[in-house]
Design a protein around this nucleic acid. Structure first.
Lengths: 241, 241
DNA sequence: TCTTAGTTACGTACGCCGTACGTAATGGGG
DNA sequence: CCCCATTACGTACGGCGTACGTAACTAAGA
């Protein structure tokens, strides 16, 4: 242990007790810290989340935060778990495909509310309390499906992968524009112009054909929710009967 | 334009000429810059890639790099495009599912060679030259498939999403351990212990059942390449006839 | 009850980071 | 041939994550 009680050994933040027996009672909690970080990320983007900002936001000194969160990466884990608690699980209907589609829609809505979520999901890869609740509920929904349990987890992973990539694509343009000094329209403009000039070169005839008719970028006149439903449903159709 | 000739307007880096007509001939190239950044990221992780490191690596002053790369984000675009050039496209066989599976395997191998790639893919969302080559080749492979072109692009996106998420999961443990002062085994140990203790609580009966038998973390005794092939094949099976 | 050891709080400091800006050198287009 | 766009790059600013040291606090053990 270092002087400040911060361990230099591997650990999972969830297995640490919030309150140790000995010293003064902690003035803050993981929940309030996570909530503040989520608030900042929602309002100003994930790059605005710093240990200093979060500490200041809850009215603590910068280094006090390290009593609750050993590293910034753990702060990310807290954030992901916090928003994962926004799922509303309803009882399985017996139609596992409908249930999983409903879950996927919730995930998409969650990511639209918290656009930084897709970028944090892959580095984290943890089994946080709310992630476990999510997995357990998914398996409940999959009870009618007659495949080995291990494959059910594969199915859940596949759906989540598709959802994450799909929504990341949806959000990419807006997120990039928000982090740069120009607008989403300008960003889309220069990218469309560039793509148009390349396609006009004739080097990519099939791509040019595929892009003509629809816009080159997601969201250009398409009903994204419908496309989303179709993509997820198609994936779900590959399992089972 | 600022004094240094660095534009503050939206632009796509690929539409900038490498050499302007006027001044001294540039001492470096986008290719060598991208190669150096890739070298650093491969050896020490993406977090070791900084403008200073890359500039020093090619023997340039830090701020000289900004004559070639207007922002760090554009450096990431160069990196993604550079490794995208490692694809080896072979003529379509007529069996589009086999062709796309082969492409997906190449993507997986690419991501294993460059473990930072999955994390850079979503923020970038660009149509770099090599990305266009990739898309064009994918559409060539999909010529035998009788669905609208727009859906073919959806299929390619779905496959890439699945691949990216799958490989990101494969790599997460090792990548996280590399960025922290302890080993991958220690990392896996504490996470497995935590998961075990939660599952033993009885709150997640279905998850506990699914996890018993196989290891809780990917790669615990499984043939990951086979699981990968199965996942991608299943997805491909959802399209077409 | 009193000590004491573990814990919380937090100020200071170090070595990084991205990049704005100013200046000197360079060499092709008019 | 000369002008000026362009390259090269040093300096500097404000921010970052976090190591470390110290003071205040409180529950557990004597």
């Amino acid at each position: 242990m270092t002087a400040g009680g911060r361990p230099a050994e591997p650990e999972v933040i969830w297995s640490r007790p919030q309150r140790a027996g000995r010293g003064p009672r902690p003035a803050h909690s993981r929940e309030s810290i996570a909530a503040e970080a989520v608030r900042i990320a929602d309002a100003e983007g994930i790059e605005a989340v710093s240990m200093r900002r979060v500490a200041a936001g809850i009215g603590a000194g910068t280094m006090s935060l390290y009593n609750y969160v050993p590293r910034k990466e753990e702060l990310y884990e807290l954030m992901v778990d916090a928003v994962s608690g926004e799922y509303e699980f309803t009882a399985p209907t017996g139609d596992w495909r409908a249930d999983l589609l409903a879950l996927a829609r919730q995930t998409r809505a969650l990511m639209h509310r918290h656009p930084w979520l897709p970028r944090l999901l892959s580095p984290v890869y943890g089994f946080s309390p709310n992630a476990l609740r999510y997995l357990e509920h998914s398996l409940e929904c999959l009870a009618p499906l007659d495949v080995p349990d291990a494959e059910k987890l594969e199915l859940v992973a596949a759906v989540n992968g598709t959802v994450a990539t799909y929504v990341a694509g949806e959000l990419a343009l807006a997120e990039r524009a928000r982090a740069l000094p120009w607008s989403e329209d300008e960003e889309q403009g220069v990218r469309t112009a560039w793509l148009g000039s390349r396609l006009a070169s004739g080097e990519y005839p099939r791509l040019a054909a595929a892009v003509s008719g629809t816009g080159p970028v997601p969201g250009a006149g398409l009903d994204m929710a419908a496309v989303f439903d179709r993509s997820v449903s198609r994936l779900l159709g590959a399992w089972g009967t």
